[in-house]
Design a protein around this nucleic acid. Structure first.
Lengths: 201, 201
DNA sequence: TTCACTTTTTGACATAGGTCAAAAGAAAGC
DNA sequence: GCTTTCTTTTGACCTATGTCAAAAAGTGAA
């Protein structure tokens, strides 16, 4: 799943998040939350490996994650960042149950809630409101990805970095430069030069 | 809405499409279809203008459409192609009810079914199965957009064209070269040269 | 068939950004 | 505090692809 990490507070409670999107009753909410498992995950841990079929969807209560893949040259290409209050998954693998093209990695010590595909489907079948939730979350993700696509498709390296700063200000100085560069579709050297030219103005 | 146009037959009936995704009863289906309006739209017609808030979602029974925007230089940038059997809309505008960044244009004479946002929301409220449909359609679109993003982000112009040929073979020779070039994030001249070098091999 | 218009191809040239290699700076372990 | 390792910066050079302009090919109407 692909989601924004811009407006993320440092901590976002899962039940507040769910209630904000769909008016679940307390009973519904309690039953739904029972299906999730809370975990603490340290920095640098890999949650999903490239090539494996991922059965798990994560919700990040606090911390930071990313998805990335290795290109032909063996270089890591960051595909997305996931901040607190967002769902995280290898979208293709989780939804289509095919081998994942991506790794999912925790970049900052995180508290996450995880749910398996079976249990999630169960929830979809039990609660129509969950379908709505799924639809809303997916739609929001779609919008974000389309925005990134626009930024990548026809903008200069500098403009892409400005898009990043505008959309995700808090992440820009929080993760290694190389992660951001590959996320924006440029080399680390280029991003370093852009930063320099920006700071000298 | 963003959707694939690769496996599109020349004609795809809307009720077959709906039934294939979610097991609606005939009564449900009839009621749902009542909310759609069937129209015939000639080539070159613009359905949504940049800057306008779009209230309409389209399903293409036959024909071909695209979304595009004008960049700073006033050049048309194709954002997506929509073939038969697919939903078409200016996603941002329709879902968030904000001014559209895109034009939606019919490229080949089309038969379409349209529905307003109000009526669609009504259907979502009446039929939980519609929520499921919405979720499934959106998820599929998300996957497609992510695929395109991957192709665009780190591949050479030539590789991007090969991605296009692989994913959407039938469109590649059906629309003006410039539409495809801008869709792939390159100039028309570059695409023309790629085609030439491919054909001489 | 011809004329007007659109789309595609070609050529010459410019440049953003890639590559490779090394130096400088930060962070982590002992 | 010193050493090792990782990250960022800098420099020199190269190439894919963009830009601009003109020719060629294709399409449709009269």
């Amino acid at each position: 799943m692909y989601n924004d990490f811009s407006t993320s507070k440092l901590f976002m409670n899962i039940s507040d998040f769910l209630k904000a999107l769909v008016p679940f009753t307390n009973d519904e909410l309690n039953d739904i939350l029972k299906h999730f498992k809370k975990e603490t995950v340290p920095k640098n841990q890999i949650l999903v490996h490239q090539g494996e079929v991922s059965k798990t969807l994560y919700f990040i209560e606090s911390g930071l994650g990313r998805s990335y893949y290795l290109n032909q040259a063996g270089k890591e290409i960051t595909q997305w960042f996931f901040g607190s209050g967002k769902f995280m998954a290898s979208a293709d693998s989780f939804f289509q149950q095919c081998p994942s093209l991506y790794y999912i990695e925790i970049l900052e010590d995180a508290v996450i809630y995880s749910i398996t595909k079976e249990k999630l489907d169960e929830l979809f079948d039990t609660y129509p409101k969950m379908e709505k939730l799924g639809r809303l979350v997916t739609t929001e993700m779609l919008t974000k990805v389309v925005n990134k696509l626009n930024a990548i498709q026809f903008q200069t390296a500098k403009e892409r970095y400005e898009y990043m700063l505008a959309e995700f200000p808090d992440i820009a100085y929080q993760v290694p430069l190389g992660h951001i560069a590959s996320y924006l579709g440029m080399t680390q050297e280029t991003l370093s030069r852009i930063r320099k030219s920006n700071s000298s103005k």
